Amino acid sequence: MALMNYGIDRLGFLIHDAARVLRKRFEERAGSLGVSAAHWRLLVRVVKEEGITQARLAELLEIEPISVSRLLDRMEESGWIERRAAANDRRVRTIFPTAKALDAYHVVKGMAGEVYEEALAGVSPDERRDLIRALEAITLNLSDGDPAAATATTTDNRKYG
Rank of each mutant, 00 (worst) to 15 (best):
L11E: 00
G12N: 10
F13N: 08
F13R: 11
F13M: 10
L14P: 00
L14Q: 05
I15F: 09
I15Q: 01
H16K: 06
A18P: 00
A18H: 04
A19W: 09
R20G: 00
R20C: 05
R20I: 01
V21R: 15
V21F: 13
L22I: 11
R23F: 01
R25G: 04
R25C: 00
R25E: 13
F26K: 08
E28N: 07
R29F: 08
R29W: 14
R29V: 12
A30E: 11
G31T: 11
S32C: 00
S32W: 13
L33I: 07
G34W: 14
V35F: 10
S36G: 05
S36T: 15
S36L: 08
A38W: 02
H39G: 06
R41A: 11
L43D: 03
L43N: 06
V44N: 08
V44Y: 01
V44P: 03
R45V: 00
V46S: 10
V46L: 12
V46K: 07
V47C: 07
V47S: 05
V47Q: 04
V47R: 06
G51T: 06
Q54W: 03
Q54Y: 02
R56E: 15
R56I: 10
R56S: 10
R56N: 12
L57H: 05
L57F: 05
E59C: 04
E59Q: 13
P65H: 09
P65Q: 08
I66K: 12
I66W: 03
I66P: 00
S67T: 11
S67P: 00
V68P: 00
S69V: 06
S69A: 14
R70A: 14
R70P: 01
L71W: 03
L71Y: 01
L72G: 04
L72I: 13
D73M: 08
D73P: 00
R74D: 13
R74E: 14
M75A: 03
E76H: 02
E76I: 08
E76K: 12
E76W: 04
E76R: 09
E76A: 09
S78Q: 13
G79R: 08
W80G: 05
W80A: 06
W80V: 06
W80D: 12
E82C: 08
E82S: 10
R83T: 05
R83P: 01
R84Y: 01
R84K: 14
A86C: 11
A86V: 02
A86M: 10
A87V: 11
D89Q: 03
D89W: 05
R90F: 13
R91T: 12
V92H: 03
V92L: 04
R93M: 14
T94I: 07
T94V: 10
T94L: 09
I95E: 04
F96Y: 15
P97H: 04
T98C: 07
T98Q: 11
T98M: 10
T98A: 08
K100T: 03
K100W: 04
A101D: 05
A101T: 02
D103A: 03
A104Q: 07
A104R: 10
V107Q: 12
V107N: 01
V108H: 06
K109P: 00
K109N: 12
K109Y: 09
G110R: 13
G110W: 10
G110P: 02
G110I: 06
A112P: 00
A112I: 01
G113W: 05
G113D: 03
G113H: 04
G113I: 01
V115M: 06
V115F: 08
V115A: 07
Y116L: 15
Y116P: 02
E117P: 04
A119L: 15
L120E: 10
V123H: 11
S124V: 01
S124P: 03
